[in-house]
Simulated scan of single mutants.
Amino acid sequence: MRTTVLAAALALTAAFAPTTAAGAAATATATATATANAAPRPQLGACAPGELCLWEKPDFTGARHIHELSGLDIESCVALPAGASAQALANRTGRPVTTYQSAECAETAEFETYPGGGTWVPQSPYRVRAFKVWEN
């Protein structure tokens, strides 16, 4: 719907735009903006059921670290290796996962809990340095 409305607006603008260089430039800018807005969103990162996947960079890029539910202690703080952090994540554990800005899972820094049924976060609001997996 958004693309259709935008296309109609661009068509009307083109129909009534003056045939000057400034009018042509305005139409070209509007077309470029429409094309940028219609660009595809990033692909979801690959993460299998039962896994918590963390990517080093936004949009599921950079090094991926996989933590399987079978290898995690429930309700224990799991710190990422020293100096490591994540900016994107996928929670496929089937359980809620809280990510922490603090490597000690301290709640004095930023933290967020994500449902476990299949949550993909292309850009965390902070660098993730630790996490906890919770009982349902």
Rank of each mutant, 00 (worst) to 15 (best):
L54I: 13
L54E: 04
L54Q: 04
L54S: 05
W55F: 10
W55G: 07
W55C: 09
E56S: 12
K57Q: 15
P58T: 15
D59V: 10
D59Y: 13
D59E: 15
F60G: 05
T61M: 10
T61Y: 05
T61P: 09
T61E: 14
G62K: 08
G62Y: 07
G62R: 08
G62M: 08
A63I: 15
A63L: 15
A63D: 14
A63N: 15
R64G: 01
R64P: 03
R64V: 14
H65S: 15
H65E: 14
I66K: 07
H67I: 00
H67T: 01
H67D: 04
H67K: 06
H67Q: 06
E68W: 01
E68L: 02
G71P: 00
G71S: 15
G71K: 12
L72W: 00
I74S: 08
I74P: 00
E75M: 11
S76D: 12
S76N: 12
S76P: 03
C77Y: 08
V78I: 13
V78E: 05
V78C: 02
L80A: 08
L80H: 04
L80I: 09
L80N: 08
L80S: 05
P81A: 12
A82V: 13
A82H: 09
G83M: 11
G83D: 12
G83F: 09
G83N: 11
G83A: 12
G83Y: 09
A84P: 02
S85T: 12
S85N: 12
S85L: 09
A88D: 03
A88M: 06
A88P: 04
A88V: 07
A88T: 09
A88H: 02
L89P: 01
L89R: 03
L89T: 01
A90V: 15
A90F: 04
A90W: 01
R92K: 14
R92F: 07
T93M: 00
T93W: 00
T93L: 00
T93H: 00
T93R: 00
G94R: 06
P96W: 04
V97Q: 02
V97R: 00
T98M: 04
T98L: 06
Y100G: 01
Y100T: 03
Q101H: 07
Q101G: 09
E104P: 00
E104Y: 06
E104D: 13
C105S: 04
A106Y: 02
A106P: 01
